[in-house]
Each structure stands twice: as structure tokens, then as C-alpha cells.
Design a protein around this nucleic acid. Structure first.
Lengths: 146, 146
DNA sequence: CGAATATAATTGATATATCAATAAGAGTGA
DNA sequence: TCACTCTTATTGATATATCAATTATATTCG
């Protein structure tokens, strides 16, 4: 493989997130069999943050509103979430976490914590901060030219 | 949003790659209308590296063999690639880039270069090296626990 | 050689990503 | 109030991700 490609750090960003997601999914599946990484993140997001519209949630989670609609749909089917009407704006829904959803959060929260710790093992706080700022720089470079 | 989540650098890795892919797709589509980022990467990979099996290519490109099969299938349909029999191992194919594929590479190579430059603008070689090594560390942390 | 095993690629099923189009409701101004 | 515009969410179409199962071919070993 050509050196230039092999060493493009953007390849490595892609590789990193894929490995992280793979590990995460595996550890999640060991505890809760019918939930995906993305569903899990949504569940935890909802638990920590109430009152956002789907559009806002999509932004926080870096997802398209279309994707989020479908993720929610599946989670409603699997009885993790419930849609309630929003009285002040009937285009929106209030998402409610079901009892099953809440139990699941209890099971998964430590798994997520563990995944993050595992992934970042051996990196100092300073290194993590640096990584964060370099990635932010790349992100804003990409956004500018859009 | 809870501080802990907002600041997890792993979120940022995900955000970064998504923004990069979005920008890349936009710039690619401006030049060649019917090709995706992944198809483009495969095309350029094949141009630079001949003789790998699909399994090997999948590893280089961080893809599943199933995904790669489907990407190739679409590219054959769109006349970017051609499958030829491999005489020594009939399970494998030799992928050949068509004339259309070769023209397309000429058009896209500078776009890809430009995308990378744009994304990494303002980062020193040293910073890029650091980013690379931090990501490598995370990747190997994730692989270990699998 | 021939049976068992291993490997390469494909296929099926389901989830997510992305863009475009649409539907339904909210807001605004004449 | 009503027409126009904007926003939110959904839906459709297509591409990719992932896992499991399958097919076809290679390899290995008795």
C-alpha cells in the first residue's frame, strides 16, 4: 500500500472509531442482547437530558433526523421508549423511557464507562485534551468548506 | 448535556470522521456525480495496489468482506470495475479498472488530495504525528479486549 | 486418492447514513 | 382570519455496516 495512504491520519480516525464501536457493541451485547451502540447512546442521552426535540437530539448525537426517527421507531417497538404527544407543539413528541428502558440503563451505564476507560487506557489527561483539540480543528476545517 | 458525555473524546472522533466524510462526499459529487466516498477510495486503492484478494482489501480499507462485495458489485454495474477470473484460485477474482474507472481516477485524485489538505489545514507535521500515535493507541486498546 | 477441514466470496437479514421529497403543524404578516 | 413561509418529523430510495449462514473452491492429512 502506498505510504501516503497508509499514513493518512484520516484513515486512522476512521479505523479508530470502527474498532471502538466494535468493542463497544461486543461488550454491550454481552449484557443486553437486543440493543445496538446507537440505541444505547440514545437511551443514555435521554436519561441525562430531557426535553430536546428530535432535531436537537440528532445534532447532539451527530445523526441525521431521518436516522434518529428510525432508531426511535425500533426502540419503541422493543419497548425501550414510548412516544407521548407534545401539547405545545404537535409536530414534536415527548420521548419517555419505559421501565424496561430504565433497567437497561442501569445495566449498560457501567459498560459504557468501561468501554471509554478501556479505549483511553494509557492516555494522560493532557494527551486526551490534545487529541480533542486536534480533532476539533479538523472538524472545523471540514465544516468551513461546506 | 452532561459534561462527561459532551467532552468524551470518543464522541469527537465520531464527529470528526462524519464531518470529513460529508465534506469529501460533497467535493467528490461536484466532480463525479454517481460515485461515493467508499467507492472512490476503493478505486484509488486498486489503482495503487494490484493483486490483493477482496479479503485483504477489506482489511486495508477497514471494511467487512460483505460490504466490499456489495461495493464492488455496484461499481461493476456502473462500469468502473470489471471482474476477471483468477486462474490459480477460482474462489478469487482479479479486479480490473475500466477505462471509465481510469478517467474517473484522474478526475478524483486531486479532489481527494484537496480534501485531506483541507481537513488537516493548520496542523503541523508534528501534530499530525501525535494525533496518529494517540489514535493508534486507542485502536490497539480496543483490539486487545476483543 | 478421498474425506475432513479451512478459506474466499457471496447472500440474507437487520441497522444505520444520507439525500430528497412529503406531510403536518406553527408562525407571520396583510 | 387566511395565505404564505418555515420548521419538525416522517418516508422513500439507495449505500454501507455487521453478523450469520451458505456456496464454491483449496488444502491437508490419513
Amino acid at each position: 500500500m502506498k505510504k501516503e495512504q497508509k499514513t493518512s491520519v484520516l484513515y486512522k480516525v476512521e479505523q479508530t472509531i470502527k474498532e471502538y464501536r466494535k468493542m463497544s457493541q461486543k461488550n454491550i451485547s454481552d449484557v443486553v442482547c437486543d440493543i445496538t451502540v446507537d440505541q444505547c447512546l440514545l437511551l443514555i442521552f435521554l436519561n441525562d437530558n430531557a426535553g430536546y426535540s428530535q432535531k436537537e437530539m440528532a445534532e447532539f448525537l451527530f445523526k441525521d433526523t431521518a436516522s434518529l426517527t428510525r432508531i426511535i421507531e425500533l426502540m419503541v417497538k422493543k419497548d425501550y421508549l414510548k412516544r407521548n404527544m407534545n401539547d405545545t407543539d404537535r409536530r414534536k413528541f415527548n420521548l419517555e423511557i419505559t421501565a424496561k428502558g430504565k433497567e437497561t440503563i442501569q445495566l449498560l451505564q457501567p459498560v459504557i464507562q468501561g468501554n471509554r476507560q478501556t479505549a483511553l487506557q494509557g492516555l494522560s489527561q493532557q494527551e486526551i485534551g490534545l487529541l480533542d483539540s486536534l480533532l476539533s480543528k479538523i472538524t472545523s476545517n471540514c465544516k468551513e468548506t461546506k
